[in-house]
Structures are given as C-alpha cells and as structure tokens.
C-alpha cells in the first residue's frame, strides 16, 4: 500500500488504529484519509488496511 505517497509493505493484517500506533502516531492527533475519503475517528479500530490502499495521514503538533 501507499502511505503519504511512499510504498509500504505490511507483514500482517492491520486495522488503521494498529497501523497508526505501529508507525508512531497518536490516534488523537491525526486526521486520516483512506483511498480519498476521510476515515471517521470512530472507525479507526475497525477499518482494515489492504493491498493497494492509499493512506494519507496528517499528524498535528502543538502550538498556536
């Protein structure tokens, strides 16, 4: 699959929240778009990532 434009190989099935944690993101500090559609936060635990998916993750850091 592609994550933020880069190719990524997943060695096992991941839900979105599992992938975000494994990649070092805090689920409460991101917005995620899967194949062009925003993923509602309530679905992070159930959306499964698959071959050919395109995932965009925007992480936010504090300060404003």
């Amino acid at each position: 699959m592609r994550v933020n434009g880069a190719e990524v190989n997943l060695d096992r099935p991941f839900t979105l929240s599992e992938y975000l944690k494994a990649a070092g993101y805090d689920c409460l500090r991101v917005a995620a778009e899967l194949n062009g559609a925003i993923v509602p936060r309530a679905k992070y635990d159930v959306v499964a990532l698959d071959d050919g998916d395109s995932l965009e993750i925007v992480g936010f850091v504090g300060g404003g």
């Binding site: 936010f60 300060g63 404003g64």
Partner: peptide
C-alpha cells in the same frame, strides 16, 4: 494550540462538512 483539539476540529469538519476548505497550523514553535 493543542494538537488533540487541532485533530478534533479537522476531523469533525471533514466528516460533517465535506468540501469545506480547511487551513491548519502545525509546527511553528
């Protein structure tokens, strides 16, 4: 200011107001 609040409003508006343009700030300290 808070990163969780930033993510909250971005997610909320992207989910509830599709098509609305959002401009965010992240990384300016």
């Amino acid at each position: 200011d808070s990163p969780t609040e930033k993510a909250m409003i971005v997610n909320t508006l992207m989910e509830k107001c599709p098509g609305l343009a959002l401009v965010c700030g992240s990384g300016l300290a």
